[in-house]
Design a protein around this nucleic acid. Structure first.
Length: 527
DNA sequence: CTAGGGTTAG
């Protein structure tokens, strides 16, 4: 095994002559890296444990994989400011100039000891991650491997986390940063003595990541706040936006938008509006998306006048509303449906057309409004209008149209459109199938209905409670009461719990099939 | 940071 690792060192050409690596190259490199790490896992960790601290296993990686550069020019060397906490680690590998490296010398040193202690893994992992600072991709896969083998423990190995965070901050790999923080949050829950704030203190020891440049620190804060939001830890996210926690860094409006939007979606509308007001007090400028979310928030509270007032606020702030803002309001009108409001939505829609601001989404919103108020032919007219403008339907919009067509009893048209979707390589999901199955049953097109059910299952889609209710209703309606009852068995094996609608449909089926006694028993004791 | 869709009611 060791032999295999050392046979063919990769020759590194000088950085100036090598073309910039493309995405494919990077992917390839990453794949190669994971492969080798997997190999390492099998070998045990001994390969990565050199005799001396300076003889880092990072060197092993260096001759094994060409060092890839990301978008930064090589003039920008990663500056890894030392901290008091990290001072005992050897910093000699900061500079990763890609000089020719004699590979043969290191072959023996990596297969040294077999008796690895947790301590040297800790030390080495920090060391290796740090030495891969010019290759974030590789650093990340190494880190992932460490985690999979549970070598990144807590709270002892906080420095390895700090190292990986610094690297990702520097390279602006925000998504990966968020993943690291998701991890950290999970770990900090296992180890209550550790607080994320301690980690930030560590990062701040340098005066910020990378020599006090707040842009880097901001990335770490954003990523952490985002991770909190994803985990619905809203209080923690909000707490971090407070002046004492921000470390005098101004929060990013995009992150704030993300927070406010998720708050609204989770029904915490008042909290969202409070944050919005706080942002304004902080002097942060909301952008058009912020305003759109606020419009949505007021609509959700049924305070449509206040939603209108937001447009005024935008005018004062000289932020031009975009199609999303208008759509948010149209959606609000459609959801708080009344004849008058629908007219309001139509007026705003035609204004959008005049301004050349229509987007696909506004069509969905208004179509949905028409469907809800049973103006199905208007909905279909709108669909035609949309096609005439060369807009295309996406998956969700297709389903809105399907649902309108099915209610009109025009399932065949819907089924034709399914073929269009497939021709466009669009994938149907469980909601499409539910709509269509329902439509087929309503028209008593049983062959189509069962074909749809089969197709859905063949594609590996699992029916959920709504789908089962639709099927139960369909079976009952066509008089197949026993099959509706039997559906409960299938639901049980699929782990879907029937609800009151399911039972209601089954009882209806039994009653209309004349099986009143069975219906009564079912009502009394269930199945 | 970018939304929206499927059952149901005398």
């Amino acid at each position: 095994m060791v032999h295999l690792v050392c046979v063919s060192p990769v020759r590194l050409s000088s950085s100036s002559s090598r073309p910039r690596p493309g995405v494919a190259h990077r992917r390839c490199c990453l794949a190669l890296a994971s492969l080798c790490f997997a190999l390492l896992g099998q070998l045990g960790f001994s390969l990565l444990c050199p005799r001396s601290a300076s003889d880092s296993a990072g060197q092993w990686l260096r001759f094994k994989f060409p060092i890839t550069k990301f978008t930064h020019s090589s003039k920008f060397k990663f500056k890894f400011a030392s901290t008091a906490a990290l001072a005992h680690f050897n910093d000699s590998h900061n500079d990763f100039s890609e000089s020719e490296h004699s590979s043969s010398s290191s072959s023996s040193s990596y297969c040294s000891s077999n008796n690895i202690t947790n301590d040297n893994i800790k030390e080495e992992s920090f060391h290796i991650v740090k030495s891969l600072q010019n290759n974030p991709s590789l650093a990340f896969s190494f880190f992932t491997q460490l985690k999979q083998q549970q070598f990144v423990g807590f709270p002892e190995n906080i420095s390895t986390y700090a190292a990986i965070i610094r690297i990702f901050c520097y390279w602006g790999l925000n998504r990966r940063l968020t993943f690291v923080f998701l991890d950290l949050i999970a770990l900090s829950k296992q180890h209550p003595s550790f607080e994320i704030h301690d980690l930030f203190e560590l990062l701040l020891d340098d005066g910020g990541v990378n020599g006090g440049n707040h842009n880097y620190m901001l990335r770490a804060i954003d990523a952490y706040v985002k991770a909190c939001i994803v985990l619905k830890m809203f209080d923690e996210a909000i707490d971090f936006l407070s002046p004492t926690r921000r470390h005098s860094v101004v929060p990013n409006i995009l992150t704030c938008n993300f927070l406010i939007n998720r708050l609204v979606e989770n029904g915490k509308v008042d909290m969202a509006l409070a944050i919005y007001n706080q942002l304004k007090r902080l002097g942060l400028c909301p952008n058009h998306y912020t305003y759109a979310i606020v419009i949505k928030a007021f609509c959700k509270k049924c305070e449509l006048e206040k939603a209108v007032y937001v447009f005024k606020e935008m005018e004062e702030a000289r932020v031009r509303p975009d199609s999303y803002c208008y759509t948010a309001y149209i959606e609000g009108l459609c959801n708080n449906m009344s004849e008058m409001k629908l007219v309001g939505a139509e007026i705003m829609f035609s204004n959008m057309i005049k301004k050349g601001m229509v987007c696909q989404h506004v069509y969905s919103a208004l179509t949905y409004g028409y469907c809800k108020s049973h103006k199905l032919s208007k909905a279909l007219d709108l669909y035609e209008d949309m096609r005439s403008r060369g807009m295309f339907l996406d998956e969700v919009a297709y389903n809105i149209v399907f649902s309108a067509l099915c209610k009109l009893g025009e399932v065949d048209d819907a089924l034709d459109m399914v073929e269009d979707m497939k021709a466009k390589r669009m994938v149907l999901d469980i909601k499409h199938y539910t709509t269509l199955i329902n439509g087929c049953f309503l028209r008593r097109q049983l062959v189509d209905a069962f074909a749809m059910i089969r197709e859905m299952k063949e594609k590996g889609l699992k029916a959920d409670i709504v789908t089962y209710n639709v099927i139960a209703a369909g079976l009952s309606r066509i008089g197949w009461a026993q099959d509706a009852v039997d559906l409960l068995d299938e639901m049980e094996t699929q782990g879907v719990k029937p609800n009151s609608i399911t039972h209601k449909r089954i009882i209806e089926g039994l009653c209309s099939a004349g099986k009143v006694v069975e219906a009564e028993t079912f009502y009394q004791v269930g199945r």
